[in-house]
Amino acid sequence: MKLYSYPACGTCRKALAWLRDRAISVDPIDITRQPPTLEELGQALEQLGRKRLFNTSGQSYRALGSAAVQAMDDGQALAALAADGKLIKRPFLISDDGRILTGFKPEEWQEALLAP
């Protein structure tokens, strides 16, 4: 599994600790240095919709502006996300079966990663 995260993000650290406590191994990737690919972001868009992809509380999003993001078509939105990892809601996890999770909600992660 790949886990795109930001080392200074408290939510990302909580997610990593949660995974570690459950002996779930991930390949941690600094989202600011290596954002998810356009293909991965496209899969996330299909699975989650645009609203779950953007880090709306981050500086990059505020600098860009909500109106500008809403005015983008999907291709423009994906290109913006791929160009600036801080725009992406994190942590951004891609499971081995291709399921994508954004943000960290323990109950959602429990169901997606540990349910039979």
Rank of each mutant, 00 (worst) to 15 (best):
M1N: 10
Y4E: 06
Y4C: 12
S5D: 04
Y6V: 15
Y6A: 03
P7L: 01
G10Y: 10
G10M: 09
K14I: 13
L16D: 02
L16P: 12
A17P: 01
W18H: 08
L19R: 03
R20N: 11
R20T: 15
R22P: 04
A23S: 15
A23Y: 05
S25W: 00
S25L: 02
S25T: 15
R33M: 07
R33W: 03
P36L: 01
E39H: 09
Q43N: 07
L45K: 09
E46M: 07
Q47A: 08
Q47G: 03
L48A: 02
L48Y: 11
R52G: 08
L53Q: 01
F54G: 04
N55Y: 08
T56L: 05
S57A: 11
S57V: 11
Q59K: 12
Q59N: 12
R62H: 05
R62N: 01
S66N: 04
S66Y: 06
A68K: 15
A68I: 00
V69I: 14
Q70R: 15
D73M: 05
G75R: 13
G75N: 11
Q76S: 04
A77W: 03
L78I: 03
A79L: 06
A79C: 05
A79K: 08
A80M: 03
G85I: 03
I88S: 09
I88M: 09
K89S: 12
P91G: 13
I94K: 09
D96H: 04
D97P: 00
D97T: 10
G98Y: 00
G98C: 01
T102D: 06
T102I: 12
T102E: 07
G103A: 04
G103W: 06
K105N: 14
E107A: 15
E107G: 01
W109Y: 15
Q110K: 12
Q110P: 03
E111F: 07
E111L: 06
L113S: 09
L114T: 14
L114A: 09
A115M: 07
A115S: 15
